[in-house]
Design a binder for these strands. Structure first.
Lengths: 223, 223
DNA sequence: ATATTTATTGACCAATTCGGTCAAAAGTGA
DNA sequence: TCACTTTTGACCGAATTGGTCAATAAATAT
């Protein structure tokens, strides 16, 4: 919440990310109550004393992660790019804007490979320890205006009768599906490091599906 | 493996299903090592003594579930229906055959609502207790012939250039997506019982996406 | 009705794990 | 050298772990 975790924030960036990612991975896999400090420090490669030195308690650590991800996810789409402009309004074509979002998500996935699993599970955490605080964070963020992907979008480019929101949902499922497909494939193959996902492979697969969808749902003159 | 869990098998069907479903739910959510007996018996509504009376150990119980699901999943598609005939070859139309599979999956999902989560996680269980046995079961089942969805299928009905396997994958992602979408929706709404999924809603959603896909990927003369 | 077998329970067990503490060690900059 | 910050893991009491078992209840057989 109020970021007074100075000792943690002053760590060098790489170490901070490692510690965050350990939490994302372990909490994301087991949930709050089943995730143990031991699991987390083993994953992060630090000592138990250090973790409590940074965050004081398991609860604080979890909520720090939740706050962190909530902020990022909330502004994933509409935050200004490096040039300072909110990029998502520049592109009015569905698939161009989609590519913009894809790029942002890619960078994020590269920095925080396990954030996806965490953010999917955390909001529904029922553990008494953290339930109330999660609701509070949710409430606060719910008040903020969120960017609408369909704002000023050329939806006329879709074939008649096609619901663009369904297409977006479909593509969103494709991206999740592509990730889990590659993950599973690599998990079966025992000689591959399971820890790191082959993003190129995921993107390749994802792009094929998006291309197929575009080809059949867009009017021919806009292909 | 060899089913000598007589005491369990002789239970009346309803109780058996309850006990199986408890395992699917808890193991599916937490994984083998983090799932505790206490969690499971609470979910199943039986005493600790009973569970050990039926299965002797946590490990046996888990492997029984894994064996059970593996067999079901393996023969989900090609098993004969109630009339004794393997139905999946009767229909040569992609979407008709798909409907067949959908119906089977529906019945299964109704009987074992949490089997999906279990079967997704269990094969990758890394706990030393059960790892070797899982591999053995996998090996044995890998030898069995599995039905091919595309066998004797009218793939010519697809528009030129469309890869039917990609379409099947896409639809598979839709079904998973529909489930998790409805699940999430109901989870946010606190006054709904979270335990039971509204299958009608899921199917409705799923059907809309399949209809959209069929409309744009099938040649017009076959719509 | 009675005897015998089967099914079910939860208090209890030793062992482990839990989140958290803290004194000591290591590192850092002057 | 000194003062200060960071890092560590042995250690704590409490809770939880998978598993046992004598007792009880229910069902079945005689």
């Amino acid at each position: 919440m109020i970021d007074i975790y100075e000792s943690f924030e002053n760590l060098d960036e790489a170490k901070k990310q490692t510690i965050l990612n350990a939490g994302f991975r372990i909490f994301g896999e087991y949930g709050y109550s089943k995730a143990s400090i031991k699991d987390i420090i083993k994953e992060a490669g630090i000592s138990k004393g250090s973790l409590f030195y940074y965050f004081e308690s398991k609860k604080n650590y979890f909520l720090y992660l939740y706050e962190y991800t909530s902020n990022i996810m909330k502004h994933l789409v509409d935050d200004p790019g490096e040039d300072g402009l909110p990029k998502y309004l520049e592109k009015t074509d569905f698939f161009e804007r989609l590519d913009d979002v894809k790029e942002r998500k890619m960078k994020l996935a590269f920095l925080h490979p396990y954030m996806g699993g965490f953010i999917k599970k955390a909001p529904f955490e029922r553990s008494q320890d953290v339930y109330k605080e999660i609701q509070l964070i949710n409430q606060r963020l719910a008040g903020e205006r969120i960017a609408d992907f369909f704002d000023k979008l050329d939806i006329y480019k879709f074939k008649d009768g096609v619901d663009p929101k369904m297409v977006l949902q479909l593509i969103s499922w494709c991206s999740e599906g592509a990730v889990s497909l590659i993950q599973t494939k690599n998990l079966i193959n025992p000689q591959i490091k399971h820890d790191e996902l082959d993003y190129k492979e995921v993107i390749q697969l994802y792009d094929r599906y998006v291309a197929m969808i575009k080809k059949h749902f867009y009017k021919e003159e806009y292909l």
